[in-house]
Amino acid sequence: MIRVESLTKYYHAFCAVDHITLDVRQGEILGLLGPNGAGKTTTLRMLTGFLKPTSGSIRVKEYTIDEQALEIKNILGYLPESAPLYHDMLVYDYLRFVADIRGVGAARTRARIGELGDLCSINEVMHQPIGELSKGYKQRVGLAHAMLNDPEVLVLDEPTSGLDPNQIVEIREIIRRIGREKTIIFSTHILSEAEATCDRVAIIHRGKIVADSSTARLKETLGGRSRILITLAQADAAAAQRELATVAGVTGLAVLEQTDGHLRLQLDCALAADPRPELYRRIKQTSWELLDFHQDTQTLEAVFRELTKES
């Protein structure tokens, strides 16, 4: 669906995007993840035809951005970061203007604005100036703007930044709902978001792609191990060490906290092995009281920190 090949962008001498290659299949939700200033927005801006790449090629379906920018713009909906829209215009007028530019017929426009009003829940602000809306509403109007002509590809630049937790959940819900049929690329620096919403994640750091795979695989291959956290009462550290560190598959044991009677342990395990049944059996044989016992797979967060460490 989308093919980006060794895309590069220089701002004078500064290299913002450095030979990025990406492939997005139809119907996929791709999360572009990276710390601030990693080159996410620049990449998306080139993809949408707003910035001209210094070198490299972009193809969307059979169109190339150099020669058929208008065709690409026609099938691509874009929500720029923080949804910059005309402050003076009413939401309804703005959406009608976009429909007009996008060549949505007059009859279809009315119906489509109605649909989007429901989908993005912006019906109650339809006749307010955009400048007076709260950030969440503005973002949702931006989303409606991007989806107006029912584009095949949707590009969203930090669609949830600056929203409150409820709004974030709502926007994610909308993204997931439309992601069933559309190809979506969205950027974020919030990891849990990529984890929750995307099929695939590409991590960008200093203009380069440092990881690109499905969210599950990413955690697996880069995490490489999992952790088990155990909280015990009526146990002492030395005995626990003796008893639990020797279980097959446990590669390390650390005492996180030891207060009167309570002992919190962290066990590092190889991902392939699952020592949980054996651990439980051993604990059962003692007189300790088991308060908490859970596995904590390496989160994307740790992977992300690992990959984007300043070195």
Partner: peptide, 14 residues
């Protein structure tokens, strides 16, 4: 200044 230039130019216009 408000950045709407970006939204405008990513609509199918030259």
């Amino acid at each position: 200044s408000i950045g709407s230039y970006e939204t405008l130019l990513t609509l199918p216009v030259t």
